[in-house]
Computed example of a mutant assay.
Amino acid sequence: MSNTPEFWLSGPVPDVPPLLQPAAHALLQSVREIKTYLTDFPEDKLWENPMGRASVGFHLRHIIGVLDRMLTYADKKALTEEQFHFLKNEGNGENAPSSQQLIADFETKVNQALNYFKNTPESILTEERFVGRKKLPSTVIGLLFHAAEHCQRHVGQLLVTVSAVKD
């Protein structure tokens, strides 16, 4: 990592409401770390499952999918057939995009999330939302926070997997 401070130490993200700053910082940090960890990553290792654990490719696809699904739920919408198809194939390396394309797709999804944050009034953050077919209860802020922390969790797992398969 560089000497650049982590995003949470870099001041507010412009136009993001104060209560959503931690989620914005976590997502931006995730992008930075993924780009760093996957510099010169061998493409033929993208779908390897070391010790039976999830592949780097899975982690990249999964964080894109989770972020997309949490934004959908926060927006009071049900998942589409396309989203269910994406979910079903997150771990499938057949005909999968390259690691660089997956990184670009994640960065695009993070930018969509940041735009969502910028257009989300703090007054609705505690409004109830429902997750999945079982309609499990959450809130707007719960979904947005979960999206960010879930990405961070998988970035950590991705780092370990990169270390295990790169050598």
Rank of each mutant, 00 (worst) to 15 (best):
S55L: 01
R61G: 13
K118V: 01
L46S: 12
V31P: 01
E107M: 06
P42C: 07
K35M: 06
S99C: 05
L19D: 14
I64D: 03
T108D: 08
E81S: 13
N3R: 07
L60S: 01
E48Q: 15
S163A: 15
P22I: 01
R32H: 11
G132K: 05
E127I: 00
L79A: 04
I141A: 15
A54M: 13
L28M: 14
Q100P: 00
E6C: 01
E6K: 09
E128G: 04
N89Q: 14
E122P: 02
E122I: 03
V165Y: 02
A104P: 09
S163G: 15
V16S: 08
T39P: 06
E90A: 04
G132A: 05
P97E: 02
F117K: 02
V155H: 09
F86M: 09
L9H: 07
I124V: 12
A113V: 04
P17W: 00
T161D: 12
E48K: 15
N89G: 13
D68F: 01
P12T: 12
N119W: 00
I34D: 09
V162Q: 11
N49M: 12
R69W: 01
K118W: 03
E82L: 09
N49T: 13
N95E: 09
M1W: 00
D167L: 13
E127G: 07
H62V: 04
S138H: 02
V31K: 05
P97Y: 00
K35E: 14
V56P: 05
Q100L: 03
E81R: 06
N3S: 14
V13I: 12
L38R: 03
E127Q: 10
H62P: 10
P18S: 14
P137Q: 04
P12V: 11
L79G: 02
Y116M: 02
V66F: 01
V13T: 12
I141H: 15
L136P: 02
A23L: 12
Q83D: 08
L9W: 03
Q157W: 02
N115Y: 04
R153E: 15
H154K: 08
F7N: 03
